[in-house]
Nucleic acid binder design. Structure first.
Length: 412
RNA sequence: GUGGGUGUAGCUCAGCUUGGUAGAGCGCUGGAUUGUGGUUCCAGUGGCCGAGGGUUCGAAUCCCUCCACCCACCCCA
């Protein structure tokens, strides 16, 4: 038997209703902030991610679906969408358009990781980018938007974490300092941390091993080493968020796994998601365009929501979408009329109408019950002769002989 | 890439310790006489017991190997 490939899955009804509800909520919020949709290809040249996301990141070194095209170019299934959006921004000279470019996207991403709860090889992201401004006001507004989105989607009990990771000016100095401070304590830390202390000191801050926490708490934090412009930027973002009454927690140890982030970074976490408790991540990436070869400066900030995780945590008990009307033709001769009436009613009302193509009346009414239909419409020889059809209310059992006009009215 | 757990009917699972070639509930199909559902009753459908090998007269059950899925590490959304 052929099955869905590892880490991918079929989204079936009624769960797809939740997905659609979440996406509709997202589009409504994006619309209210005047963001517009962008759709970029799922396939890009490998170079785009290597340079955009970072040559040394885990995503690029071991998680990408990369293959050689028949023409010989190396292509990659997108592991994230920000690099593509910036590529499109540069390629189509969106910097020439008026104002800050506000773009959103919804779609699948691909990373070849070991699947687990809330983590899939094909997963969906809902994200947005505001490109063309360095102002901290934009940071605050992007964060406000994502909070509105989560609430509109029905998520409760989440927590917003923010931090600043500095810029090309102050971060390297901080990392050097961190490396120094780690040297004496590293041997007493866990195995992972000993390795990270050398390869990627920032990640030590992310360590969850209980025994290491005391030592890690004594390490210098990035926030104490921000350069003046970065510190002012961060202070402004926090001020704006307070003004908006958006609760947040500063997490000086919050570091992101993609190289392009600078200054503001943020994350939203939610319990009951298992180990993958991060619903969304985002941040500012003022140097990304240049590292992709752009001559124009294109500072920006964005986020991406893990849609699979969001859906998982707002998913209520799936009830199938109820059916408004099931038509039950009695006898062969009623089939044609039923087909015509079904189409007429769909056009004349907003109701969902289904036609039972076969079965005894008893079975069809049983089906109506199982489908949760509000009404059943019985069409047989007598009904056709009188042009009045039996509309049965499935919850009360009451049945009346009505004309098509009366039926249409009853369905509203 | 590393660890742990689980694989028996469409779904949720029992049976495995103490080997005797398969069970429940739900679902699905049909019946309780003609064109009227929900409840009830009856019947039916349905499984190469994840795959392969070994031990044995005999394996879902014991042993070995492999595979798949889930969870966790790592990393991230």
């Amino acid at each position: 038997m052929i099955k869905a490939v590892k880490g991918t899955r079929d989204l079936l009804p009624p769960s797809t209703q939740t997905w659609n509800r979440v996406e509709e909520a997202a589009r409504a919020v994006f619309r209210s902030y005047h963001y517009h949709e962008i759709r970029t290809p799922i396939l890009e040249e490998t170079q785009l991610f290597a340079r955009g996301v970072g040559e040394e990141t885990d995503i690029v070194t071991k998680e990408m679906y990369t293959f050689e095209d028949r023409g010989g170019t190396s292509l990659t299934l997108r592991p994230e969408n920000t690099a593509s959006v910036i590529r499109a921004y540069i390629e189509h000279r969106l910097d020439q358009r008026p104002g800050v470019q506000k773009l959103y996207y919804i779609g699948p991403m691909f990373r070849r990781e070991r699947p687990q709860k809330g983590r899939y090889r094909q997963f969906y992201q809902i994200g947005a980018e505001a490109i063309g401004s360095e102002s901290p006001v934009v940071d605050a507004e992007v964060i406000a938007m994502v909070i509105d989105l989560l609430e509109r989607a029905g998520l409760e009990g989440f927590q917003l974490l923010i931090n600043s990771v500095g810029d090309a000016n102050c971060r390297p100095q901080y990392v050097a300092r961190l490396r120094e401070e780690l040297k004496p304590v590293a041997p007493s830390l866990c195995g992972d941390c000993q390795r990270r202390a050398d390869t990627n000191p920032l990640r030590v801050l992310d360590c969850k091993v209980e025994a290491d926490q005391a030592a890690i708490d004594r390490l210098p934090t990035i926030l104490d080493h921000l350069c003046d412009p970065c510190r002012e930027h961060f202070e402004a973002v926090k001020r704006y968020l307070c003004g908006l009454k958006i609760p947040f927690a500063v997490r000086p140890r919050l570091v992101r796994g993609l190289d392009y982030y600078m200054r503001t970074t943020f994350e939203v976490v939610h319990g009951s998601l298992g180990a993958q408790n991060s619903v969304l991540g985002g941040g500012r990436y003022d140097g990304l365009a240049e590292s992709l070869g752009s001559k124009v400066h294109a500072p920006g900030i964005g986020f991406s929501i893990g849609e699979d995780r969001l859906v998982m945590s707002v998913e209520d008990t799936h009830k199938p979408e109820p059916l408004d009307l099931l038509i039950a033709p009695v006898g062969e001769s009623a089939l044609r009329t039923s087909l015509e009436i079904a189409r007429h009613l769909r056009a004349a009302s907003a109701a969902s109408v289904e036609l039972a193509p076969q079965g005894k009346l008893k079975r069809v009414l049983e089906l109506a019950d199982k489908l949760g239909a509000r009404f059943a419409l019985i069409i047989g020889d007598d009904e056709m002769a009188n042009a009045r059809y039996g509309l049965k209310n499935m919850s009360t059992g009451e049945q009346r002989e009505l004309s098509l006009e009366e039926i249409t009215a009853a369905l509203e």
